[in-house]
Design a protein around this nucleic acid. Structure first.
Length: 579
DNA sequence: GCCGTTTTCGGCCCGACTGTTTTCAGTCG
């Protein structure tokens, strides 16, 4: 059995909340389960560890009742309470909650009156106009339910940040110079640089909303205008992406930007803090609760300041301790893209890249880097054109020959060495010693047991020449969950071996993710933020890796490739600590 | 069910939209 993870526990708690909602239980009890679920979902530490040490109730939002349920669930894989709750609610009701517009009340109504117990049956009933006979539902509501139910059955997946962000930036770029636009920013999860995005939301400050609406809905990239009101509009772009815009009065822009940037959990915590201070925070501003006097809202900075907090980058706003840190003026100074001095994971035509060593080096120089590592695949990765021992020597001669041409830029000769299914590295010691930097990756045997994978990674990390563990979970967002691996143990070993762990910046990898990047930092592991570029155009993926690092609270000092060249070289040359 | 700068009891974020109402319930973010 694979271990129960934080995400499973969070889903279990959400399931309880859904069932309680259907039962018509106290909205505060329901909110308590949802809050606990949110907290646990975004925690960095493995909940099984916390439980084993009897510290569940130290988690904010977890008290005696929820902690007992988590403990039972972790120990047995089941929860008696959940089973008995399930029996009290008509089967299929929980599924109906997935339809936006159908909450507990309406779900219960259609179930009770029409016997509907699945989304498919709901669609059928709506088509046959059986819903509009029900109290509180008329034609329009029936249409809306049908529309939403159909969308659930063909649910559009969340967008990768690497798709959503460029689309948002294109719109921002097109509207920025419009005379009616005073300020414009992407908001929502894009601004927080989350790995996947639900909706693309853009905020505009303007005194002339009508002009902004007009400019937005007539953009050349707008294929279809889905909605157009006085301060809000939606378009479908040529790339089939929905983009929403809303126009805000300039004096309310800060509070609106703060509100629409989220996260929801961060906003709730912020509003609770405001209440404790006798204030009231909404998207319209920060107010004195008694007099309703408006104290601020033009900028985000003044809102945070009045609340007694340091302003914080949106990447931190997940209610993972950033509010407490801001109160105590101990927010991290997050790593920035300009701190990155080199890229340590680049492919060329020698293996499965599409550009030459020279082209990749020139692209790195153009980005302002001081160094870069060429890390083509190793010999056993035939599909990716892995280099034979002889080709490694050839490539080394080429790179040595290029050094003078590009000095003082430094080309590091590296390799992305395959960790074979038996845990051995793909070259013998003699060849490995030729490289300036050895990085290691799992590329095969994904179906192996957790023990096998752990063993492979462990032996690769213990190899005295290994300097970076690449894409540690092997996941592809939305496509592949990655291999079974005990990351907590891997990171602890990496810390002991003084080996860096990659934050792979490919938009569909982002591996480590933000949660584990933060755990790595806590354990004292250096992060290597790499583009894993297979062409010159991919070097720009670096920004997504930096975003993950920032969401993981990493600072410049936590990042291997933010080190100046001389310090990086001395690290690469030093022999590793004994295992 | 959780929690504490007034609290171990009595609160719990805030506002908008939609569709259905004639003053509001349900849902969402």
């Amino acid at each position: 059995m694979t271990a129960i993870r934080n995400k499973d526990v969070a889903e279990m708690l959400e399931g309880i909340a859904d069932l309680l909602e259907l039962k018509g239980d106290s909205i505060y009890r329901i909110a308590a389960y949802r809050e606990a679920a949110r907290r646990i979902d975004s925690m960095t530490e493995d909940i099984a560890n916390i439980d084993a040490e009897g510290r569940l109730e130290e988690i904010p939002g977890v008290g005696p009742s929820i902690s007992a349920k988590i403990d039972e669930y972790l120990r047995t894989g089941h929860l008696g309470y959940l089973d008995s709750l399930g029996k009290q609610v008509a089967p299929g009701l929980a599924e109906l909650l997935r339809v936006p517009g159908l909450g507990a009340r309406r779900a219960e109504l259609v179930n009770k009156e029409l016997g509907i117990k699945s989304v498919a049956e709901l669609v059928e009933a709506a088509r046959e106009h059986r819903l509009d006979k029900l109290p509180g539902i008329r034609e329009k509501m029936e249409e809306k339910i049908l529309r939403e139910a159909l969308r659930v059955t063909q649910r559009t997946k969340r967008l990768l940040l690497g798709v959503a962000l460029p689309a948002a930036e294109e719109v921002v770029g097109l509207l920025r110079d419009h005379p009616a636009v005073k300020r414009i920013d992407p908001a929502g999860s894009i601004r927080r640089m989350k790995e996947t995005i639900g909706d693309i939301d853009i905020l505009v400050a303007s005194d002339r909303p009508k002009d902004v609406m007009e400019a937005f809905t007539t953009l050349p990239i707008a294929r279809e205008v889905l909605a157009k009101g006085t301060t809000r509009a939606s378009i479908l772009t040529e790339a089939n992406l929905q983009i929403d815009i809303r126009v805000i009065k300039p004096e309310e822009y800060g509070s609106a930007l703060q509100y629409f940037s989220g996260s929801k959990s961060h906003n709730i915590a912020l509003r609770e803090l405001a209440i404790r201070r006798g204030l009231k925070l909404s998207e319209y501003g920060l107010f004195d609760d008694r007099s309703d006097k408006r104290l601020g809202g033009r900028t985000e900075e003044e809102i945070y300041e009045i609340l007694g907090l340091d302003w914080m980058p949106p990447e931190l706003r997940e209610n993972r301790g950033e509010i407490e840190a801001a109160l105590e003026h101990r927010l991290p100074k997050l790593v920035e893209e300009k701190d990155i001095l080199g890229d340590l994971h680049l492919h060329t035509k020698w293996s499965d890249g599409s550009d030459t060593v020279e082209a990749m080096v020139e692209a790195a120089i153009k980005r302002g880097y001081k160094y870069a590592a060429i890390t083509d695949h190793s010999r056993s990765l035939g599909v990716a054109g892995g280099l034979s021992d002889e080709e490694v020597r050839e490539q080394r001669r080429l790179i040595e020959g290029l050094q003078d041409k590009y000095a003082p830029f430094r080309i590091l000769h590296g390799s992305e060495v395959n960790i074979r299914t038996d845990g051995n590295l793909d070259y013998d010691e003699e060849t490995l010693r030729l490289f300036d930097i050895v990085t290691v990756s799992i590329h095969g045997g994904f179906g192996q047991t957790r023990e096998k994978i752990d063993g492979r990674i462990s032996s690769a990390l213990r190899h005295p020449l290994t300097r970076v563990l690449n894409h540690p979970t092997g996941r592809l967002i939305g496509k592949r969950t990655g291999y079974a691996v005990d990351l907590e143990e891997v990171l602890k070993l990496a810390a002991r071996m003084d080996t860096a762990v990659e934050i792979n910046a490919q938009p569909d990898r982002l591996d480590l993710d933000d949660i584990w990047a933060r755990r790595a930092k806590q354990l004292g592991v250096m992060g290597a933020i790499d583009s894993d570029a297979h062409s010159t155009g991919h070097l720009g993926f670096m920004r997504y890796g930096v975003a993950v690092a920032r969401r993981g609270w990493l600072e410049k000092k936590d990042v291997l490739n933010a080190l100046p060249l001389n310090r990086l070289l001395s690290r690469l040359h030093s022999s590793k600590k004994a295992a």
